[in-house]
Every structure is written in structure tokens, then in C-alpha cells.
């Protein structure tokens, strides 16, 4: 049965004195895709970057409230950040493969976690490249530098790199904003496939993309969660006038 794999409770985030998130309560069902939409500066990226504690690396960043992942607060002392980021993977706006071979990009995570068995790593490289439908395109050139791939291929490689270490949640921060429409369509198809095994949270500026790929949509404005609901409901009959104004292009 579907359960909430992740939940934020009254989540507040600050950069110095500036409050970015103003008490976000959101729960994410496992094996669903949730889109987070909202105008620039509404806090959506800060929100997903808080979920795998990447923001913790930024000086002056401070958080209040709770983020519960698999029934445990991610800020508990006994939670290991590196282990958290293994379970909560992330793909960023711009494809950011390491300047290494395709193979090494995916094997990198295994090195970090001290896994050296070549058979395991080979299998993971092949599996994860297959999951992102890149295997057929690169299987004969795994030693090729990843930076020689096209933008769309690089982004799918980043998905493969995130998937190789078997996360439970995948955070996507505008993953298609820097790639062409064909690659975007492939990634959207990939998101749909990945939902069977992962819980996905995607930040996107593209409203049609949010409508196409997500089961649930959350609308953020000025650090507040204005509306959350099933995507078909949000896009046909939003309850809040501010959501309606934003998605119909009347402001933002």
C-alpha cells in the first residue's frame, strides 16, 4: 500500500536573516511524481535542496521544522548525510557529468561507498544506463569522456549516475530546462517509467511539463505552500485564485 515516504512539517528555511520557506507542510506518497511549481524566488529549489541537506553546505543556511524520511527526521544526530544523499538522489538543472569516462561517472558513487567488486559495478553501469535508455547509444564507448556527449545524453547520464546507487527518492531541479525538446520528451518518458520504483519530486518552470509528468502538484508563492493536490485538479480547477492566476499566466 502506498505510504508517505517523505514529509515536511512546518519547514522553515533561512539564508541569514532572510526567511525563504515559511512553514511548509507537505507529504509525498511513495511511487508518485510530485511537481513543485511557482515563480522565481518562491522557495521551490530551496525546498528540494533541503530534503537531501545540500543546503547545509551553504554558510548562514538555517532550517526549522522537521523533514521525516522513512519515519526518521533527517536532522537526527545519527543520520549520516552521505547515506541520506545516497537514498535521496538529485539531478540538477544543467547536466553536470564529471570530466571522466561514461563508465567512471556511474561507478563514482560505488567508489565513494567503498564498493570495489567489478562485477557489481559493471552490472550497475549497464542497468542504470538501460534504465535511462542510454545504453544502446553508448555501450560501445563507455570509456569515452562524458563531456563529449550531447546535452540531452549528458542529462540522462546524470540520471543514470543518480540511479546507480539505488536511491528511494529522486529530486529533480528543473532537469529539462537546459536541453532540447527531443531529450526533454525522453526524460519525461523516463520519469514516467522510474515512478514504478522511485518517488520523484520535480521542480519545474514549465507548467505543461508539470501537467504531463506529475501525479501531484504543489504551488509555492513567496515561501508559502499555496495549494497542493492532484495534478489534474490543479490544472482544471485550482481552488486558490493565486494558483489560477499563476498557471493561466495572469501573473508571474
Amino acid at each position: 500500500m502506498a505510504k508517505n515516504i517523505l514529509e515536511t512539517q512546518d519547514l522553515k528555511a533561512y539564508f541569514g536573516n532572510k526567511q525563504i520557506l515559511k512553514g511548509i507542510n507537505l507529504a509525498f506518497l511513495s511511487n508518485t511524481v510530485t511537481a513543485i511549481i511557482g515563480p522565481s524566488g518562491c522557495g521551490k529549489s530551496t525546498f528540494i535542496r533541503s530534503i537531501n541537506r545540500i543546503n547545509d553546505l551553504i554558510p548562514n543556511f538555517r532550517i526549522e521544522g522537521n523533514i521525516i524520511f522513512n519515519d526518521q527526521d533527517i536532522h537526527d544526530k545519527n543520520v549520516d548525510e552521505v547515506d541520506l544523499r545516497r537514498k535521496v538522489g538529485m539531478v540538477f538543472q544543467r547536466p553536470n557529468p564529471f570530466p571522466k569516462s561514461i563508465y567512471d561517472n556511474i561507478a563514482y558513487g560505488f567508489n565513494i561507498y567503498g564498493i570495489k567488486d567489478k562485477y557489481t559495478i559493471d552490472a550497475a553501469v549497464e542497468n542504470s544506463l538501460k534504465k535511462v535508455a542510454l545504453w544502446e547509444e553508448v555501450k560501445n564507448n563507455l570509456s569515452q569522456n562524458a563531456l563529449t556527449l550531447s546535452g540531452g545524453q549528458q542529462q540522462r547520464l546524470c540520471f543514470a549516475r543518480a540511479l546507480a546507487i539505488e536511491p528511494e527518492v529522486l529530486l529533480l531541479d528543473e532537469p529539462c530546462s537546459a536541453i532540447d525538446p527531443i531529450s526533454t520528451a525522453k526524460i519525461e518518458e523516463l520519469i514516467h517509467q522510474l515512478k514504478k520504483n522511485y518517488t520523484i519530486i520535480i521542480v519545474t518552470h514549465n507548467m505543461q511539463q508539470a501537467a504531463r509528468v506529475s501525479d501531484y502538484t504543489a504551488f509555492f508563492l513567496l515561501g508559502e505552500l499555496i495549494e497542493f493536490g492532484k495534478t489534474d485538479g490543479i490544472f482544471t480547477a485550482p481552488k486558490d485564485k493565486r494558483t489560477e492566476a499563476y498557471i493561466t499566466g495572469r501573473f508571474g
Binding site: M207, Q208, A211, F235, T236, A237, P238, T243, E244, I247, T248
Partner: peptide
């Protein structure tokens, strides 16, 4: 135009 919400309706 891919209208949504009130425009779609």
C-alpha cells in the same frame, strides 16, 4: 495556447 484552469474550462 494549451489553456489551463478557468481558460481550459
Amino acid at each position: 495556447k494549451q489553456p489551463v484552469a478557468v481558460d481550459f474550462r
